[in-house]
């Protein structure tokens, strides 16, 4: 483990990570509050931040835990929500190919934000392997810290948290608006919205997620030729 600390790379990584510092801690707190609201303490929050490490998925996981869904549903829902990571990982295979023992972790740590940050250009004198590693670790530390703080605040019941679950709705709305700025996302987004409304009417609010996701995948495959023209 010689030369594990490279000060220049660490400094540079920290500066790059400042936007995620605030973002992850605030969103992490929102997640921790939600999780403690349904009765899980900061240890759960911290471990979920460590092993799942994904904002959208962890918010959905709160619902999955609250409803105590079957393991098959949990697996399928995770697969569909995190399917985009296949794309992230594939696109990083070349860049991370000589990263040795750090490779598995670096691939695991590719959240939306980290993916964007490690793809920013940096000075050539900096040790790229260490820089990417520090950046990935720092981001995850911010996220876990937020998760734990949120769950702790929630457990002290300092204020009436009723309605705090709207952070999840608002987060999805904002992500959705960001995605709509890319033109090729509009048609898949419309499919997502309309198929979901239809499924909500057909299947009702109780058993909504699974049949809807399957319907969305089928619809996306039916329109594949048309959508691929816009990609």
């Amino acid at each position: 483990m010689k030369n594990l600390i490279d000060k220049t790379a660490l400094q540079k990584a920290f500066i790059t990570s400042i936007p995620t510092l605030t973002g992850y801690i605030i969103m992490g707190i929102a997640f921790g509050l939600l999780l403690s609201d349904i009765g899980y303490n900061f240890i759960w929050a911290g471990l979920m931040g460590l092993f799942i490490y994904g904002g959208t998925m962890q918010f959905v996981a709160v619902d999955l835990l609250a409803n105590q869904v079957t393991l098959l549903s949990a697996a399928l829902i995770t697969f569909l929500i995190h399917s985009r990571h296949i794309f992230y990982s594939i696109s990083m295979i070349d860049k991370y190919k000589d990263y040795g023992i750090y490779r598995p972790y670096l691939f695991f740590a590719l959240t939306d934000e980290t993916y964007a940050l490690v793809n920013l250009p940096i000075d050539s004198e900096i040790d790229k392997v260490k820089y990417d590693l520090y950046l990935s670790i720092l981001n995850q530390i911010y996220w876990i810290t937020g998760d734990i703080i949120g769950a702790l605040i929630g457990s002290f019941s300092l204020f009436n948290t009723e309605g705090v679950d709207f952070t999840m709705t608002a987060l999805f709305i904002v992500i959705f608006l960001e995605q709509l700025q890319t033109k090729s996302n509009i048609f898949p987004a419309v499919i997502g919205l309309s198929v979901s409304c239809l499924c909500l009417v057909i299947f009702g609010p109780e058993n909504f997620l699974l049949p809807t996701m399957v319907s969305i995948v089928i619809t996306l495959l039916i329109f594949r030729k048309r959508i691929e023209k816009t990609l």
Binding site: H85, F176, N185, L193, V195, S196, P205, L209, I216, I227
Partner: peptide, 28 residues
């Protein structure tokens, strides 16, 4: 090369899934 269908789905799923999650949040 990666199978086309996987690349396709990983590109178009995110906006569709987030759209679904918004409806999910409003389901009740």
């Amino acid at each position: 090369p990666t199978p086309d269908i996987l690349v396709y789905l990983s590109k178009v799923m995110p906006p569709a899934v987030i759209g679904m999650l918004i409806i999910y949040c409003f389901r009740n």
